[in-house]
Amino acid sequence: MSLKDRLGEDIKSAMKAKDKIRLETVRSLKKALLEKEVAIRPSGQDSLTEEQEIELLAQQAKQRRDSIEQYRQAGRNDLADKEAQELAIIETYLPKQLSDEELSAILDEIVASVGATSPKDIGKVMGVAMKQLKGKAEGKKIQEIVKGKLGG
């Protein structure tokens, strides 16, 4: 089942269940998906690839994480909680997130494969890591672990 179909089904079930937050969140995802599809049409592509869908979902999740952080700093826990609920819903569409141990092991392989040895090589490692781990781990966490490994 494509992501668009899955979102359509989830909109229907959220409407039946009168689950307002799920309905709003899934609708916003579908809207973002449709906008992205319209944006890529000029390049001759009708629908998004799985990789593009994951990228879109990861962007949506990142927006929610950033909002949560800003709302908490502003003392608006009510809004932060709503964003956290939306984030949890979005994460159900993303690939399973890697544990810190799995992430660390994969990053060890990437560090070895690019021959990184010092903090100067963080950029090289991050480029490969972000491509390989898109949607499977948060960029901030990847960067933290890479800096730890290379003494950044």
Rank of each mutant, 00 (worst) to 15 (best):
S43N: 11
I11F: 05
A39Y: 06
G135T: 06
Q85D: 13
G44Q: 05
S118R: 04
G115M: 02
E53D: 11
M15N: 05
M126R: 05
L133V: 08
L107W: 05
E144C: 01
M15W: 02
E101P: 04
Y71R: 12
K30A: 13
K96H: 11
L23I: 02
A61T: 05
L133D: 02
K136G: 01
I54T: 14
L48Y: 09
G135H: 04
D46A: 14
A74D: 13
S113M: 05
K120N: 11
K12D: 13
S113T: 01
G75Q: 08
E55I: 01
A17C: 00
Q63S: 12
E69W: 07
V111E: 09
E144T: 12
K36Y: 11
E50L: 11
I122R: 07
T49V: 01
A32Y: 07
A61W: 03
S118L: 05
D19Q: 04
K140N: 10
D81W: 04
Q97V: 04
R72T: 14
E86L: 03
E9H: 10
V125H: 06
A61V: 03
K62D: 11
L3F: 10
E50W: 01
G75K: 09
A137W: 00
E53T: 05
A14I: 05
R76Y: 04
I89R: 05
A80I: 07
K82P: 00
G151D: 04
K134F: 03
L87V: 03
A116L: 01
G115K: 04
A61H: 02
I90W: 08
V111H: 08
K4Q: 10
L87D: 07
I142M: 15
P42G: 08
A105D: 14
E51K: 15
V114E: 12
G115Q: 00
D108L: 08
I142H: 07
